[in-house]
Write a protein that binds this DNA or RNA. Structure first.
Length: 576
RNA sequence: CGGGGUGUGGCGCAGCCUGGUAGCGCACCUGCUUUGGGAGCAGGGAGUCGGAGGUUCAAAUCCUCUCACCCCGACCA
């Protein structure tokens, strides 16, 4: 393509709205433009990258035996009511009404629609297994869209759904998708890790997330420093701490004044103690009833674990009024001592603490030497917190490290959750009716672009991995008024096109500096620079965007060299 | 949803406190010069000052409401 004909509105300055690198660079490189919060236009360069990602995803899905279909973004409420998710999904579901006042939503995912399709069209075990996928726009009314394509309200996702006659078959499909995901993310040139994950609103029995490792990631990953266990911090199981609680002599309960000290930091600083010596008491409303959760001062409550433990669907922090009503004291000074009519759940790490500093349920006061069993009673101890660095691996007991990651893929073993709810059945060889055993598999296609840039950039701009680069070669004639330069540039350009290589030719009459800077910003893997002086000596210059390395190549050999360069390490669809 | 912040030409910003009728850099257009890492000179085009209402002789500026966008938010328990 010719630069002058493409809409590539590069920006010299950083737009103020962009926080993270990928967002900044995508705006600056003219790939995307914001339409509204979390909603973006894809411009030509952005779309090219998107298409390349989609192409790789499609190739590997087809290779794994999945078939492409396309479902609607607009979905009727009835389907969602069948599975109960019309209620469960909450405010994140984009809901709307048609002119007849009938309820619809813009799909954040498509389990209902696909299950409805399959229950109508698939009746026999002979038609199984079946795996259908689509690449389509998804909608989520995020509380706070941010980071450009990373967390948008409308985004592009590949979602696949497998249907099997039994669990064994479903596991096989799950494995196939799991393997396909490894191939996809490897081909995309991402550094990633598959981790055990929570199933969230999708549900099902087990799941893995594929995380791209990056500091800007929104997810925490706990991974063992010794074995290959890795899990989302929300999911990571934490064992009861080693060591027994001894029969230490604990001093008796003592109330101290802590005027205005509410936070763990304030209280521990004021009392000259470590946050680990505090136990904080968080009050929740769990399906309407009061629950207190105790965790160590330096730990964080994991609401997902609490929810699962209690078997409730709604869990929210109690507001100040409820805290006052239940504990008798203002928020900031809650504690388990003397707490009545509230179920008390203690994290496992509390169990072995002989004593702790806790709130006294009255303004400006805390207790020292509060001892569970003696001064307060915990109804049950359980794993209800997030993992932190140094926690022990549930598999092998070695310490775990915490990294940050961007979730780009998620595979779920659904079982019969949706087929039962929607009565989706088939007949086995004996004529008996069974529910389909399902799996579902998502990839955040647009998010992958952001994730890739987070891992591949420098201070000048983007550095695309070849498989998803918008162009493979960027031809830059420096002196555009020189006939010799332009003729050679056009010659190489023509040859590249005939060889089927995506090539961008810089045909604007800009100064050299502008061309170079835009080229580095765009991040096309190879820049072919043509200048009078080099040409006169019979050379063109080849610059590797990633390494910055420049080499002179004889003009006659340039075309073959470039073709080899692009095709050489060409990534093939896996083993097909 | 709560807290904080910002809306002035395509982008980045100043002006607002202390009202007097809009400015700077970049980008854009024209001409000349320049031409291997974001050029120089000269000329030019472009702004409902987010929106509505109010105060005033006069509002980008003061007041009220509203909208949009950005940032932070269990760790206050």
């Amino acid at each position: 393509m010719r630069y002058s004909k493409l809409l590539i509105p590069t920006l010299r300055e950083d737009p103020t709205e962009a926080e993270v690198i990928s967002h900044r660079l995508m705006l600056r490189a003219g790939m995307i433009r914001k339409v509204s919060a979390g909603i973006y236009n894809f411009l030509p360069v952005g779309l090219r990258v998107l298409s390349k990602v989609e192409k790789i995803v499609r190739e590997e899905m087809e290779h794994a035996g999945a078939q492409e279909i396309l479902m609607p973004a607009l979905q009727p409420a009835e389907l969602w009511q069948e599975t109960g998710r019309w209620q469960q999904y909450g405010k994140e579901l984009m809901r709307l009404k048609d002119r007849h006042d009938r309820d619809f939503c813009l799909g954040p995912t498509h389990e209902e629609v696909i299950t409805d399709l399959v229950r109508r069209e698939v009746k026999s075990y002979r038609q199984l297994p079946l795996n259908l996928y689509q690449i389509q726009n998804k909608f989520r009314d995020e509380i706070r869209p941010r980071f450009g394509l990373m967390r948008g309200r409308e985004f592009i996702m590949k979602d696949a759904y497998s249907f099997d006659a039994d669990l064994e078959g479903a596991k096989e499909n799950y494995k196939k998708m799991y393997d396909a995901y490894h191939k996809i993310f490897s081909r995309l040139g991402l550094r990633f890790r598959a981790v055990e994950a929570d199933t969230g609103l999708i549900g099902g029995s087990s799941s893995h997330e594929f995380m791209v490792l990056a500091q800007t990631g929104e997810e925490g990953i706990a991974s063992c420093t010794k074995c290959d266990y890795a899990a989302n911090v929300e999911r990571a199981e934490l064992k009861r701490g080693v060591g027994e609680r001894g029969a230490e002599q604990v001093k008796s309960l003592e109330k101290v004044q802590t005027p205005g000290k509410k936070t763990v930091e304030e209280v521990s600083a004021f009392l000259k103690s470590a946050p680990q010596q505090l136990v904080k008491t968080l009050l929740f409303v769990a399906d309407g009833r009061p629950v207190a959760v105790l965790v160590r001062g330096d730990h964080q409550v994991n609401e997902i674990k609490v929810r699962r433990l209690l078997g409730v669907s709604e869990l929210a922090l109690a507001d100040a009024a409820k805290v006052e009503a239940w504990t008798g004291g203002p928020s900031g000074f809650s504690g388990p001592v003397g707490l009545k009519n509230v179920e008390i759940i203690g994290d496992l790490s509390i169990e072995t603490m002989p004593e702790a500093i806790v709130g006294a349920n009255e303004k400006d006061a805390h207790y020292l030497h509060a001892s569970s069993g003696r001064d307060f009673k915990v109804d049950r101890f359980a794993d209800v917190r997030n993992a932190i660095a140094g926690d022990l691996c549930p598999r092998c007991g070695a310490p775990m490290a915490i990294d940050r990651g961007i979730e780009v893929g998620h595979v779920f073993m659904l079982g019969t959750k949706y087929s039962e709810a929607m009565k989706a059945t088939f007949l086995d060889p004996k004529g008996e009716e069974h529910f389909f055993v399902m799996g579902c598999y998502g990839i955040g296609v647009s998010r992958i672009i952001a994730a890739s840039i987070e891992q591949n950039h420098d201070e000048k701009g983007i550095i695309w991995p070849m498989p998803i680069a918008p162009f493979a070669i960027h031809i830059i004639p420096v002196q555009d008024q020189s006939e010799r330069v332009m003729i050679t540039a056009e010659l190489i350009y023509g040859s590249m096109l005939r060889a089927g290589i995506d090539t961008l030719i810089e045909d604007r009459s800009e100064r050299a500096g502008v061309k170079f800077n835009d080229a580095d910003l765009l991040g096309i893997p190879y820049q072919v620079v043509l200048g009078e002086k080099n040409l006169h000596e019979g050379f063109v210059e080849l610059k590797n965007r990633r390494t910055g390395e420049k080499q002179k190549i004889e003009v006659e050999k340039a075309i073959d060299h470039l073709i080899e360069l692009v095709r050489g390490p060409r990534t093939q669809p896996s083993s097909s």
